[in-house]
Amino acid sequence: MQILPAATYLGDSLTTRRANGILTSVTSYSEVNLPNVSLHAHENAHVTTLLAGATLEKRQRSECYRQAGQAVFFHAGEPHQNSNTLPGSRNFNIEFTTDFFQTYHLDPSDIAGAVSNNPLAALVFVNAYRESLHNDPMANDSVAMAILSLLDTRTNAGNRPPKWVGQVTELLHDRWNEQVGLEELSKETGVHSVTISKHFRRYFACSLSEYMRKLKVLNALSLIKNTSNQLTHIAYEAGFADQSHFTRVFKEVTGFLPKQYRNV
């Protein structure tokens, strides 16, 4: 099995930045450098966020089709393979060295859990990607702060979240482009609306309306990158009342204007 060294991926690495135990890079895939199906792993633990395109990812016990707007964590030395990668795919990679984990007193499993248990993690990494584009010595500090912010979410909100948190998450993600109100959440979960209202921010790190706006933006990421639809059409498809509102919320959540994100 091939072990890829730091900041090395199967595609073309466009930019690489190293500081404070973190390496960030952007990888692109064209017709001539699409990943083959050979099993490989990476020297460092890392998070890959798909900015554009899609790929079929296979691990030892799972197979998943990944597309723009998704973030995934890999442990150091974890075998995996990619196939059916779309030409034009682009990834933002954040690698963690031993120094990073020692500095922040963390274990790779802490980040793995934060990513897998936070359905909106990709939005945090898109924002980190925007920060990494600046020719600024503080850019990697901003990336580190984005990562650490994930650790202060519902996965660290005390004990294991109650069952209704998972039910609400599933319902909101299934119906992300609909108007799902508090009373409906209460009815579907069998939990009093007062209980949901009281604890929602604790487990979701924002209000219900803010969470729904973020969900819409999350789903708009792949529409912007993987289709040629006009932004006005994407705004309506993502459940926004008009393009102006879509543009404002998208900028607020990701740091990019929709047009900037399409062209970056």
Rank of each mutant, 00 (worst) to 15 (best):
P119R: 05
H134D: 12
T189W: 00
S142H: 07
P161W: 03
L14F: 01
L171V: 06
F250Q: 01
N219A: 03
N127R: 14
F100W: 12
T232K: 14
E183H: 14
S244Y: 09
V72F: 14
G21M: 07
G255Q: 00
N263C: 02
T169S: 15
Y129F: 15
K259C: 08
V72Q: 10
P5S: 05
V249R: 03
L185K: 09
H134R: 12
S149R: 11
P162V: 03
R202A: 09
G190W: 04
H80M: 07
L51T: 04
F96P: 08
I3T: 12
R202K: 15
G239Q: 05
T98P: 09
E184R: 15
K251H: 11
K251Q: 11
S149V: 03
V165E: 04
N159I: 12
T247V: 15
N20L: 10
N93F: 09
G239W: 01
L56W: 05
H46D: 08
K251D: 05
F250M: 01
H134V: 11
F74K: 09
L182K: 15
E183S: 15
L120F: 09
E188T: 14
A157S: 11
N118W: 04
V165D: 03
D174I: 07
L172H: 06
V72M: 12
T48K: 07
Q167F: 00
T103S: 13
P258D: 06
N127Y: 10
N229G: 04
Y29I: 04
D141S: 11
S109W: 13
S132L: 06
G21L: 07
L150Y: 00
K198W: 04
E131T: 10
A235C: 09
P161N: 05
H245K: 15
Y261M: 10
H233A: 15
R154G: 11
L172S: 04
L148N: 04
D110G: 08
V194E: 13
H42G: 01
A112N: 13
D136G: 07
E178Y: 10
A19H: 12
Y211M: 04
S149H: 08
L51F: 02
K198Y: 14
W164T: 01
V72K: 14
E43G: 05
E131A: 14
T55H: 00
V165I: 14
N84M: 12
S132I: 05
P137S: 09
E178T: 07
I3N: 13
V249K: 01
T48L: 08
S207D: 12
G181Y: 15
N177Y: 11
C206E: 15
T98W: 14
I22Q: 00
S228L: 10
A114R: 04
L120W: 10
R61H: 13
